[in-house]
Amino acid sequence: MGTTETNRSDGSSRLDRRLLLERLSSYWLVGAGFFAVALFGLIVLTLVQQSIPIVSEYSLFQMMTSSNWDPASDEFGFLPAIVGTIYVTVLSMAMGTPLAILAAIYIAEYAEGRTKLIVSSFIDVLAAIPSVIFGLVGLIVVVPFVGDYLAPAVGAHSIGLGIVTVSLVMAIIVTPFMISLSVESLEALPDELRESSLGVGATKWETIRTVLLRAAGPGIFSAILLGFGRVFGATIVPAMLIGGQTAIPESPFDAGETLPTLIVNDFGELMSIPLTQSALILVGLTLLVVVWIFNFGAMLVRRRLQRRWQY
């Protein structure tokens, strides 16, 4: 009799403990859930607040279009870095995107069994290699290649460091992310799509080009945009390989700079010249805003494609 009594009271206090844990944990989880929002808000607020000094001093338009970057004499022209960033992004994506999509097609549609397993694990490995190692190998291999062979071959002059060198390395760095996302989208497609297209006598390639690439289009499109964001914000590889020159590059074989390398190269001096700090933080904010705009634009385009290319 006594034991049942104890059991029951023990049971109800245990239930109380469990419910208390449930309540406390849900507070924590709600907090953790909104941490992403809070973090993003805090980052934006901090960067905006710190950018105010430079924006109130110089007009945004003036800074974007001036090619003179010389903080010591209060000249803050972003144009060379903007041009460099566009150069690197366009070149790397132009080389990397077709490469990645073709490789994804190989893995999803051609490779079978063991080969497929091996190739896709290699892609995973490639994705995990730190970019600083790509930079180092770039210095050892790509810099002499561009300086001694590629540039002379097209009749240009290059010291090896420069926009082309960065683009070649970034084109490789960016492929694994695009490949694995594209492979995922292709493999998610039902076999009926393949059967339907092959069943009316299309070749495998016609099926891939007309049917599969469209049906997987929204996913592949996101993959490309993700790659774009990576190249756009890449810091370490450009900083190691672009050659750091604060003038507008005349050819892709020239040295140059990108928005992130501007930050890396000049952040050391910021303590002495206050406006530089604000200018560089503005650059950081710009990176964030552009990535944000692209994410948002991607969402809209993706939605359109999903309707247009539904299956």
Binding site: L47, G229, G233, P260, I263, V291, N295
Partner: peptide, 20 residues
């Protein structure tokens, strides 16, 4: 928001923490 954070270039985090 997670997607935006996911795509944010790491250098921005560096600048943010340094600002702090």
């Amino acid at each position: 928001f997670l997607n935006v954070l996911w795509g944010t270039p790491p250098i921005v985090y560096g600048v943010f923490v340094l600002t702090i």
